[in-house]
Computed example of a mutant assay.
Amino acid sequence: MSASDDELMRRIHRDLIDGYDEELEMEFEDRTVAELTGDASPDFTAQDKEARRQYFRELFRLQGELVKLQDWVVATGKKVVIVFEGRDAAGKGGVIKRITQRLNPRVCRVAALPAPNDRERTQWYFQRYISHLPAAGEMVLFDRSWYNRAGVERVMGFCNDDQYEEFFRTVPEFEKMLVRSGIQLIKYWFSISDDEQNLRFLGRIHDPLKQWKLSPMDLESRRRWEDYTKAKEIMLERTHIPEAPWWVVPADDKKKARLNCIGHLLGQMDYNEVAHPAIVLPQRVRHEDYVRQPVPSNIMVPQIY
Rank of each mutant, 00 (worst) to 15 (best):
R53H: 03
R53S: 04
Y55L: 00
F56L: 02
R57G: 04
E58N: 08
E58I: 12
L59I: 05
L59R: 01
R61E: 12
R61I: 10
L62S: 07
Q63R: 05
Q63I: 02
G64I: 04
G64E: 06
E65T: 00
L66P: 08
V67A: 15
K68P: 15
L69T: 05
Q70Y: 14
Q70P: 15
Q70R: 14
D71L: 12
V74E: 12
T76E: 03
G77Q: 00
K78L: 09
K79P: 02
K79W: 06
K79I: 06
V80F: 12
I82T: 14
V83D: 11
E85F: 06
R87Q: 10
R87V: 09
R87Y: 13
R87F: 11
R87E: 12
R87N: 12
R87K: 12
D88M: 09
A89E: 09
A90I: 08
A90V: 10
A90W: 00
G91I: 02
K92Y: 05
G93A: 03
G94V: 02
V95A: 05
I96V: 09
K97P: 02
R98M: 04
I99P: 07
T100G: 12
Q101A: 07
R102I: 03
R102G: 01
L103D: 06
L103A: 15
N104Q: 10
P105V: 07
R106F: 04
V107E: 15
C108I: 10
R109M: 08
R109C: 01
V110M: 15
V110I: 13
A111E: 14
A111I: 11
A111W: 09
A112Y: 08
A112V: 09
L113I: 01
P114Y: 02
A115R: 07
A115Y: 11
A115E: 13
A115M: 04
P116W: 08
N117T: 00
D118T: 07
D118C: 08
R119G: 04
R119H: 00
E120W: 00
E120T: 09
R121K: 08
R121W: 06
T122W: 10
T122Q: 11
Q123F: 13
Q123R: 12
W124E: 13
Y125F: 15
Q127F: 10
Q127G: 14
R128Q: 10
Y129W: 15
I130W: 08
S131W: 02
H132F: 11
H132V: 05
H132M: 11
P134Q: 05
A135H: 12
A136F: 08
A136Q: 04
A136P: 07
E138Q: 13
M139N: 14
M139S: 12
M139D: 08
V140L: 13
V140T: 13
F142L: 02
F142D: 11
D143V: 09
W146H: 00
W146C: 03
W146K: 00
Y147H: 00
Y147W: 00
R149A: 08
R149I: 04
R149C: 07
G151I: 07
